[in-house]
Design a protein around this nucleic acid. Structure first.
Lengths: 215, 215
DNA sequence: GCAATATTTATACACTTGCATAACAACGTC
DNA sequence: GACGTTGTTATGCAAGTGTATAAATATTGC
């Protein structure tokens, strides 16, 4: 009688397994929302059995939190990278920042699905709400600092209130274009969203960000 | 021996019950996401028993679709109402449109939670994706028509491409401010978002929308 | 090779899920 | 007031849920 053969397995490093589980979780969420992120579906995707999840996380809830924190971290990291790679003047840096936020890999359905799935519960889940707020404010402060540099570079002076308003508005247009780009990327030509984003920021600040660009 | 007394009930009209069930569904989704929208939770909130749901809808899926359609309809209806109530010139109408989108009841956590919960699955669920696209394009067309009127009123002429870009950008800033307002309304003063929105649109179009407003 | 360890699998359990069905009672009609 | 219609409740079921626990095996150090 063939005794049911036990499944072969390999022991992976702790950090590696954690990461795999988180990635599998994000895949599940992206495809079928939080509903689709069941321990069994996650385990299947990670190539392990369901029980293992509880060896690395106290429970499913903690795994989801870790997964959300991971995506948040990735998004802000991408934005900061875009900032760090441009060494030219403030205007080019702001333009690069806006543009980077409006092309892949920041524009991405998968990321958007995950973001929406989690953020939908930010209203009722205080922890999620705080996490979003922190991320948003961090992003906005970045924008505000950038705007301040740009205006200073142009020899203009802005009050704290003006700076704040500019940061809010610029942040909003990036967010709005990001959402649309993620949801209906095929409706826009390559680079069109970045173009519109930069153009809008220029209009709002009343100065050009791209030097050689005559249009 | 007290035989378990059967629950008293009233027969409501068909349309009334449908609407109640949809409303209960939206409440559940708003509070706990799609996960929270179980037939039992919905029924409890609607004041009926779970089985009744299947008397009015083929299944839970159809109830969710109906609920989503309802919110979509409400949002576009609110926008159109804002448009219809202003009879003055094109500029005032555009300003009113923007402002109406950035104050309650359009700015509302509950609506946002519902929107996010559903839209998160637009990437994988074709029906949802199409529904969003239709709604978005409808909204954008409205904006585009409005912008065309405004520019004409200002004696300016714009190519189709310019109009399209303006519509996309204005739509984006409304969306972006809407998201932030819903998620963190307490961070903004009353009317601040509307103010920022209108100001941004003015900057993008290069003309003022509010006549008497000297700031 | 061999034992010790703890990662991983397998199984079980209590609970929830959506749905099917049958019993019931509220309402309109005569 | 009796009566049939059907909106509504109650109950049951199979599948799926997260978690707890024990058994098994891959890996490490000797």
């Amino acid at each position: 009688m063939a005794v049911a053969a036990r499944r072969k397995f390999r022991r992976e490093g702790e950090e590696r397994r954690r990461q795999d589980l988180i990635e599998a979780t994000l895949d599940c969420v992206a495809e079928n929302g939080l509903q689709g992120a069941t321990v069994r579906a996650i385990a299947l995707r990670a190539g392990v059995t369901a029980g293992l999840i509880r060896h690395y996380f106290p429970g499913k809830e903690e795994l989801l939190q870790a997964a959300y924190a991971t995506t948040m971290g990735r998004m802000t990291e991408l934005a900061k990278t875009a900032l760090a790679t441009v060494e030219e003047g403030p205007r080019q840096r702001l333009a690069a920042f806006v543009a980077a936020s409006l092309v892949p890999p920041v524009i991405d359905v998968r990321t958007f699905s995950i973001w929406a799935s989690f953020i939908g519960r930010a209203g009722s889940d205080p922890a999620l709400g705080m996490a979003h707020r922190a991320g948003y404010l961090g992003f906005r402060d970045e924008v505000e600092a950038l705007v301040a540099e740009v205006l200073a570079d142009a020899g203009r002076q802005a009050s704290a209130g003006e700076l704040r308003r500019h940061a809010i508005a610029i942040n909003a247009i990036i967010d709005g274009l990001w959402v649309e780009g993620c949801l209906a990327g095929d409706m826009f030509a390559n680079g069109e969203l970045a173009e519109i984003g930069i153009g809008s920021v220029e209009a709002m600040l009343g100065l050009r960000l791209r030097q050689g660009d005559v249009s």
